[in-house]
Design a protein around this nucleic acid. Structure first.
Length: 589
RNA sequence: CGGGAUGUAGCGCAGCCUGGUAGCGCACCUGACUGGGGGUCAGGGGGUCGCAGGUUCGAAUCCUGUCAUCCCGACCA
């Protein structure tokens, strides 16, 4: 492909409203343009990457017996009424009317349609299981689209749905898709992690997210360095920790009642404690207390959370533990009123509230806590002894980097940031029941199919690849999704001897199956072409110029390492092949 | 939905406060020079200043409304 004919415009600066690196680079490299908020044109360069990733996805799914189909973007309201999602989906669902005033929506996902397809065709257990997928444009009318392709309103997604006779078979398929996804992202050539998104669930529905690791990722992830356990930091199990001061004699709560006038910060409070043995206390010798208000339906109640003061509360865990729909901190003024003292001195002792204590405090004693008296703290707090409405020790804190893995007990957690690009999810019978997607089992009884669903954000993944692979000069494409493999730059491309060598290299490489973008543009200085090549980020740059040709060589440059190899023009194909063998991430190992 | 900001050529910006011929850089076109990291010179084309209304002899500039975009938050998962 001659660059002089390619639909592309590169920019020295990114548009002002491009706020993440992938969006800036894709716009500067002429891959995408914004048409409206969260809606982008995919220009030829971008589409080449998108198509390549789609093909990887397609191949791996078809290998596992999945069948591709294509469902409509525009969907009738009737289907969405059956699942009740017309009512519950909210304004993210873009609704529209046709000329007859009938209601339609743009599909944000396709559970209804695929369930409708299957219920019309599949009647017997003999036809199950079946796994269907499509690669198609979706529309979600996000309140606030941002981050370019990472959270657009219109995006391309692979969505797959499987149908089964029972839970066990749906589980089997779940893990098969899990493995297929691992192969897909491995072939893509990026660093990624499958992440447990709902760690505690037993049986029933469970789900994994696949994250591309990138410093700019929205989600914090903790991963054990010894076992497979990887989860969203919000959900990561935190280990209990031993009490580090077990050699101290157990003190009575009220014995050491110490003065902390006007000291609010946790660190300062702990430091303020002094007695014969202590000159200030470390944070893990102090406790802190939060008063939460929980709601479920119309019911509202309060719950107390006690933690080591160097730990952060995990409200998701507390919410799940006490079975609330949502929880929030009790407003400070109200908490002060309940405790009868000011913020900074509020403590759990004597408070008439159910108390949930983080398990890192199991066996702990001689802790500090607010004395519910302005200017005072207790030293000698022992939760299981001193809390009247003690509801036990539980995992209620945020796990953090360096904690011992709560699963295997051997490794420790490492922290990553990730971009969620895929999800495997066991749906159960939610849609099949609502929409009567049933089959006859061996006994002739009608049963709802058990469903799974499996998504990969295609365009988001391409953006995530860039978030993970770039430098100050531009994009660094991994081989499998690079728009072209080789960026052939001819300098002084109007000179016949250069053009002939360059054109020869281009056709040789193409004949050998490589995709070449040939910068044959006339009259541009070398610097311009090099800058463009770096920005566009093809894995290899092949430079043909008078300087090298004088010595009978052309130069092959690795975009990632910037390493330059001087080779004879006739060795170009062999050199590119060697490079591909060395760096191509394709393969399922 | 709450708070904040911005709309001037394809992109990045100045001009607005203090009303008077619409500017700069990049990109584009012509020519010459140059030729290994966004090169130089000369010439050129392109803008109803987001839109509507108002004030004024006169509005990019002041006023009102409106639309769009972006940021923070809330919401959602």
């Amino acid at each position: 492909m001659k660059q002089s004919k390619l639909l592309i415009q590169t920019y020295r600066e990114a548009p002002r409203d491009a706020d993440v690196i992938s969006q800036q680079l894709m716009m500067r490299a002429g891959m995408i343009q914004k048409l409206a908020a969260g809606i982008y044109d995919y220009l030829p360069l971008a589409l080449r990457s998108i198509r390549k990733f789609e093909e990887i996805v397609r191949e791996e799914l078809v290998r596992d017996g999945c069948q591709e189909l294509l469902m409509p973007v525009v969907q009738p309201r009737e289907l969405w009424d059956e699942s009740a999602r017309w009512q519950f989906y909210g304004r993210e669902l873009l609704r529209l009317k046709d000329r007859k005033d009938a209601d339609f929506c743009l599909g944000p996902t396709h559970e209804e349609v695929v369930t409708d397809i299957v219920r019309k065709i599949i009647k017997s257990y003999k036809q199950l299981p079946i796994n269907l997928f499509q690669i198609q444009t979706k529309f979600r009318d996000e309140i606030r689209p941002r981050f370019g392709l990472m959270r657009g309103r219109e995006f391309i997604m692979k969505d797959g749905y499987s149908f089964h006779v029972d839970d066990a078979d749906a589980d089997r398929e779940y893990w098969r898709m899990f493995e297929a996804y691992k192969r897909i992202f491995a072939r893509l050539g990026v660093k990624f992690r499958p992440v447990e998104a709902d760690s505690g669930a037993i049986g029933g529905s469970f789900t994994h997210e696949f994250h591309v690791l990138a410093g700019s990722g929205e989600d914090a992830i903790l991963s054990c360095n010894a076992c497979e356990y990887t989860s969203n930091a919000e959900k990561t199990e935190a280990p209990g920790l031993p009490f580090g001061y077990a050699s101290e004699p157990v003190l009575d709560l009220k014995r050491a009642h110490f003065h902390t006038p006007g000291i609010i910060a946790m660190e300062e409070q702990a430091k303020a404690f002094r007695d014969a043995e202590h000159n200030g206390l470390p944070l893990d010798h102090a406790s802190k207390f939060y008063l939460y208000r929980a709601t479920r339906g119309d019911a509202t109640w309060d719950a107390g959370l006690v933690l080591r003061s160097d730990h952060d509360p995990n409200t998701v865990k507390l919410k799940n533990l006490i079975g609330a729909d949502s929880i929030d901190l009790v407003p400070l003024e109200e908490a002060e009123k309940r405790a009868g003292t000011k913020s900074g001195f509020i403590g759990p002792v004597d408070m008439d509230v159910s108390m949930y204590v983080d398990r890192s405090l199991e066996g702990a004693y001689n802790l500090t806590c607010g004395a519910n008296q302005e200017g005072y703290h207790h030293f000698g707090f022992k939760p299981d002894r001193d809390l009247k409405q003690m509801k036990g020790f539980h995992d209620l804190r945020m796990a953090r980097e360096g904690d011992v893995c709560a699963r295997c007990g051997k490794g420790t957690y490492e922290a990553f940031r990730g971009i969620e690009v895929g999800q495997v999810f066991k749906l159960g019978t939610k849609y099949s029941q609502a929409m009567s997607c049933v089959f006859s089992d061996e006994a002739g009884h009608e049963r709802p199919m058990v469903m799974g669903c499996y998504g990969i954000g295609i365009t988001r993944t391409i953006a995530a690849v860039i978030e993970q692979n770039y430098d100050a000069d531009g994009i660094i494409w991994p081989w499998p999704v690079a728009p072209f493999h080789v960026h052939l730059v001819s300098l002084d491309s109007n000179k016949p001897e250069i053009a002939s060598v360059a054109n020869r290299a281009e056709s040789d490489l193409e004949a050998a199956g490589f995709q070449v973008l040939h910068d044959d543009r006339d009259g541009l200085s070398p610097g311009v072409k090099f800058k463009d090549a770096d920005l566009l980020g093809m894995p290899l740059r092949l430079t043909v110029g008078a300087k090298g040709l004088k010595d009978g060589i052309v130069e092959l440059r690795d975009r990632r390492t910037k390493e330059v190899t001087k080779i004879k023009p006739e060795d170009v194909v062999a050199a590119v092949k060697a490079h591909r063998e060395r760096t191509n991430h394709e393969g399922t190992k």
